[in-house]
Design a protein around this nucleic acid. Structure first.
Lengths: 154, 154
DNA sequence: TGATTTTAGTTGACCAGTCAACTAAAAAGT
DNA sequence: ACTTTTTAGTTGACTGGTCAACTAAAATCA
């Protein structure tokens, strides 16, 4: 019996494990599960909440619309995430002075602390991923992702 | 203004678009959306239902447990998928003679027809992905996925 | 054999992602 | 100026994925 059960699936047809979409789905699921574990152990943020804090760190106080554009997140989902983050005191939501439709969200002191608690482990994780690949592998991987993403859009 | 808004996010910090986890999440979302569109246009299966039919095609009549093991799908989700597929007449669910806990699921005639209707487009899609990469890129991509998957498991 | 552990499958609860409808304000077009 | 279109944000509905509890049957093993 082999370690990976999928390995045995060949029978004259393209083995499932070679299908790119399937491989990406699995990889993504595992990465997400891991990110969830790391965040849980370091302050208890959800991944969506983590990303919002990352974006505020990048952009400074900003609007949900800006964040949604940057990371292509659904604005409905973002709206709810912001609501719960605000209720937990991780961010502050103010009316925008320049635009009466918009709001400005910014980090609270608690938000900063939670963010900085999770950051080292999350950075390390990114670094581990990057360092597990050679320079050539990183370049090709990025190029491949670009190509596939383009194809997936049509 | 550049085409990709994320492109502008550099500001002395690791640009978000270079984070591997983020890139995979994006790519995966786009691939799934596309698969959903293709399936919708070719018989209306959901992706989970499609995968179940693919696995039955690989394995012949088999048990949910076997499928769950092969594609690492949650058995709860699979149980519900099988229920709705059975209600739609895509598969047949019989008690197993060898094991009184287990069931055997197999394709119905309708299931076969729907599967074969979706298959060409889904195959073509896989082929398009594969053909968009050079042999070397495919090899390196697969190696990179292996490495990252291993890392994500720890 | 009988007790313990593992496996098959179902179900309930919860969270994340997607989509569409809706309000209100801003921007663009005429 | 005023009509039309776009943008910001909220909400509801639906789907998918994950987790845990639970049953019943099988497999393990003492």
């Amino acid at each position: 019996m082999s370690a990976d059960p999928v390995e045995n699936l060949t029978i004259n047809k393209t083995p499932l494990r070679q299908m790119l979409t399937y491989r990406f789905t699995r990889l993504n699921a595992k990465m997400n599960a891991q990110a969830g574990r790391v965040l849980k152990e370091n302050g208890g943020l959800s991944q969506t909440q983590w990303r919002v804090l990352v974006l505020i760190d990048y952009l400074g106080p900003t609007s949900p619309a800006h964040i949604a554009r940057e990371i292509l997140m659904d604005k409905g989902q973002l709206s709810r995430t912001i609501k719960t983050m605000s209720e937990k005191g991780l961010i502050k939501v103010d009316a925008s002075e320049a635009d009466n439709r918009a709001v400005v969200i910014s980090r609270t002191e608690l938000g900063r602390r939670v963010f900085e608690r999770a950051q080292p482990a999350m950075r390390q994780r990114q670094a581990d991923f990057a360092n597990s690949l050679t320079q050539q592998e990183r370049e090709i991987l990025n190029r491949a992702i670009d190509k596939l993403e383009q194809l997936a859009e049509r």
